[in-house]
Design a protein around this nucleic acid. Structure first.
Lengths: 331, 331
DNA sequence: ATGAAAGCGCTAACAC
DNA sequence: GTGTTAGCGCTTTCAT
């Protein structure tokens, strides 16, 4: 009696249709041992019934989902969008689904999402971590296969990052070569590593390291704008600013216009991350390009790899000079 | 004997620890009937053991995953990124995970992803459809709850879209008011609906409808650039171009620069979709703003809704005038 | 109000 | 080589 409710075709159905046992169906479909003849029958029956094995059943049995969880601060940020694209692209070749969550750079929200991943029995997770080491304790204890991307996070978790220190140094050298001596860094919260690299770069080129030249912002566009405006107003002596990400760069350009600060006449600007609009911007922005897509791809490769994995993969960055930097202005 | 392998805490463990049956644990945890005293015991035991119910077990039993599948052409495109953000934001309030897939606007790839969703028993799917009606046949037959976003797709599937016809009309009227009579439309493949709206708008303002003024591009940036350059070269008499999306707009600006076509002196440009960089662009771009985030959010609301749903939700667009349009140039 | 038991669809032992 | 069977962790009748 057909009660109208769709019943899913199962192994059992295929087994009956093919006149074999369920185990045989399972074997054939997962490429196990079987006689050519049996294989034929099973495949035919499966095709005839339009059989789709249920990932639910398989995963429960195997006590894990093949898929991967991906946690990023903000999908709207071009950098993370490209990173996601890289992960998706790699995951595709494994035929595995990826579940993405937005942390908003909030450790609490991140912890919440980690909980969800665990509930889902996701055993592979890639994350741009916002929380400190302890946020990730439960995840590690749950035994999931974790890889960090874009940020170092904790030392016991493999990570794929851009060589921001290298990029920073190149940029600072470039700026110093232009005569700048007061270079400000507009950083996102959680970019401690990058701030440290900035200070190091300053030292390397023999510039004084002033922590007051580092301004922090939260992940949102609003916060970025406020920080950029604050930086431009409170540090009129800074002749160059380094924006720690494309959202921060965008905010800096906007704030500069609003405050009638000319780029590059009044202040030079170098932005982290090359985005399509950097070239369209007026003036075209000099940037430290990062292989966002590749970071995602490599992270995915790592998370799929079973055996020993390198503790850290560092991908090169590149200074792309356009028109947002000029010689130090007269003061 | 501890063999080092993490065994997941299950209902059974909690039941034993609390001295009750598994059914009771399940009831308490899903807010069913239970005496205050029993509830107390169960909750305490669950907390003590740090119990996380397995979504796998629950889903298999319920024969569905609560989560939602999301299919978009390109996560890298700011419009879709914002749409995703909207979906994620709504899904978060339901505590449900969302799995995203990239179709690249390729029906074949889309069909493949639909297959994956079915295997995962995903019963809720939101998609920006690229395939024709038949691509979605299997999904519908599998009984999943489908909502289209940004594109109409087939009539039997509810959709959330922007009022692009309205936006297009406003834009065409604006351009016509500026004296333009040859307006070109740079469309993405699959934007048939939008092309039709464009023709309709032309008629409304009394301009001749020439199909030769419509140029198509694929989803990629390269294809967009080629199409934009082609348009600019092959139609030197077109004094205004309407770009059907932000990637196309970006390509148009780039191509125009390359070909030394000045905006807005030589050609006026209106771009579909407002993006952060539109304002930073030189010149700042006049755009038809679309509530991308909201489209995603509303689509998610719809897909979560159980009862009767509206067949179509149309969200308003808005013409944001900046500086990329000018009066028709002398010819 | 609570417990026992029957599966959801699948795979992996284990028999034959 | 192939079938039988026992669960994976959960919810949900059905008794009690």
């Amino acid at each position: 009696m057909n009660d109208g409710i769709q019943r899913r075709t199962t192994v059992k159905d295929v087994a009956e249709a093919a006149g074999v046992g369920v185990a045989t169906v399972s074997r054939v479909l997962s490429g196990g041992q079987a006689s050519a003849q049996t294989r034929e029958k099973v495949l035919a029956a499966a095709a005839r019934l339009d059989y789709r094995p249920s990932a639910l059943g398989r995963n429960l049995r195997r006590r894990r989902t093949g898929g991967i969880g991906l946690l990023v601060p903000d999908v709207t940020d071009s950098f993370y969008a490209r990173l996601i694209d890289g992960v998706l692209s790699c995951a595709r070749s494994y035929g595995e689904p990826v579940t993405v969550g937005v942390t908003g750079d909030d450790p609490e929200r991140e912890a919440e999402l980690i909980g969800t991943m665990i509930e889902q029995s996701m055993d592979r997770v890639i994350a741009v971590p916002s929380g400190d080491g302890e946020t990730w304790g439960p995840a590690l204890r749950a035994g999931l296969n974790l890889v960090f991307a874009d940020r170092r996070g904790r030392a016991d978790v493999p990570s794929v990052i851009a060589d921001d220190a290298g990029g920073l140094l190149t940029a600072v050298e470039y700026l110093a070569g232009l005569g700048h001596r007061k270079i400000a860094f507009l950083a996102r919260h959680g970019q401690a590593q990058r701030v440290a690299a900035f200070s190091a770069a300053l030292s390397t080129v023999g510039l004084p390291v002033g922590p007051d030249l580092v301004v922090h912002a939260r992940a949102s566009r609003d916060s970025a704008y406020a920080a950029a405006a604050g930086l431009l107003q409170r540090h009129p002596d800074a002749t160059a600013v380094l924006a720690g990400g494309n959202v921060l760069g965008e905010a800096t350009v906007l704030a500069a216009r609003e405050l009638d600060v000319r780029i590059p006449r009044d202040v030079s600007l170098v932005m982290f991350d090359d985005v399509p609009w950097a070239e369209l911007c007026s003036p075209p922005l000099t940037v430290i390009a990062q292989p966002a897509q590749d970071i995602g791809y490599r992270a995915a490769e790592l998370v799929f790899r079973q055996g020993r994995r390198p503790p850290r993969v560092i991908l090169p960055t590149e200074l792309v000079v356009r028109a947002s930097c000029g010689p130090r202005r007269r003061i």
